[in-house]
Nucleic acid binder design. Structure first.
Ligand SMILES: [Zn+2]
Ligand SMILES: [Zn+2]
Length: 312
DNA sequence: CCTCAAGGCCAG
DNA sequence: CTGGCCTTGAGG
């Protein structure tokens, strides 16, 4: 028995079908479910260089930059170039003026997060460095973000992506879609910080680092210094225990969905609305279970007004 | 194998 | 010095 089961015999269910049809702009009941793992390999970076705004050509020394800023950064670090700003250290850097003040340009390179350690002291060519996996993760994160809001004709819930394809009403579908529900390619490691690509690397070419690291490091420190006051130590474990994990919720909901789908025959397959209802169902249940298991909830005292103290 | 960032090259 | 294009080569 599902709280949200679409029941064609009730007014409420009928209106929700209507609502869904309005929402989707077409006949929901004729839709078949498809679950996709990921969007097609979209053209990766049409972004602009954070330093000069020119077109990005790939990841260079820690982040996506244009070709010329890559070259500039490399030359500067390799040859230990030192520039001096003739102005007030705040020259505008854009595609047109990027060559005017190398000092400010380099400063901007560092401030947006380009990494000195990525310039090799031994000038080794090819291969990959430690930033490789980082690039990969960042790329995944970005294309995942993109697919989330530019979804063509589908809905994504808990990483379960529903896509609709419509077949002419009447004929039995010759190829019943296998509908293997799966996660979207979610590597979501909590919050995705985009700009400075994450963690500092331990030991890497200190001789190249030294000259500049001072200023950069201090900037990072400043920004990471701002953290909320920690809760009382004794409460910490409890609070962590109470934390509702998105991944767990997903797994829970997905697990039920998969079992539900698997247990159904080919001809009483859940339609899209049905699936969405199951998702809502299990979410509610999971939420309630979570709340009940939370110590803070358990500590709540329930008081009933007595006749004496009741105010009319 | 292929990918793609890192270094090298060199005309402008 | 600049920046587009080329060559490398570890990792997936
Ligand atoms: Zn640039
Ligand atoms: Zn300047």
């Amino acid at each position: 028995m599902s709280l949200f089961s679409p029941d064609p015999s009730t007014q409420a269910a009928l209106s929700s079908v209507d609502y869904a049809q309005d929402l989707l702009g077409s006949d929901v009941s004729g839709a078949s479910l498809q679950v996709k793992t990921e969007d097609s390999w979209e053209d990766s970076f049409r972004e602009t260089c954070p330093i000069c705004g020119d077109k990005v050509s790939g990841y260079h020394y820690g982040l996506l930059t244009c070709e010329s800023c890559k070259g500039f950064f490399k030359r500067t670090v390799q040859n230990d170039k030192r520039y001096t700003c003739l102005e007030k250290q705040s020259c505008p850097i854009d595609k047109a003026q990027r060559t005017r003040c190398p000092s400010c340009r380099f400063h901007k390179c560092l401030s947006v997060g380009m990494r000195l350690e990525a310039v090799r002291a031994d000038r080794t060519r090819g291969g990959r460095n430690k930033l490789g996996p980082l690039y990969r993760r960042d790329r995944q994160l970005k294309q995942q973000r993109r697919g989330l809001d530019s979804s063509p004709a589908g809905i994504s819930v808990y990483g379960i992506k529903l896509e609709y394809s419509f077949q002419p009403q009447g004929g039995a579908p010759p190829t019943p879609s296998p509908s293997p529900c799966s996660y979207e390619d979610s590597q979501s490691t909590g919050l995705g910080f985009s700009s400075p690509l994450e963690s500092p690397l331990p030991g890497c070419l200190p001789e190249l680092c030294d000259p500049y690291c001072q200023e950069v490091k201090s900037e990072w420190l400043c920004s990471s210094q701002v953290r909320p006051p920690l809760p009382s130590p004794s409460l910490l474990p409890e609070m962590m225990h109470c934390e509702l994990e998105e991944a767990a919720l997903r797994a829970w909901v997905l697990g039920h969905l998969q079992r539900e789908l698997a247990s159904r025959g080919k001809h009483d397959r859940l339609n899209t609305l049905g699936i969405m209802c199951r998702v809502a169902d299990q979410t509610l249940f999971a939420l309630v279970e979570w709340v009940r298991g939370c110590i803070f909830f358990k500590q709540l005292t329930v008081t009933y007004p007595t006749l004496n103290s009741a105010i009319i």
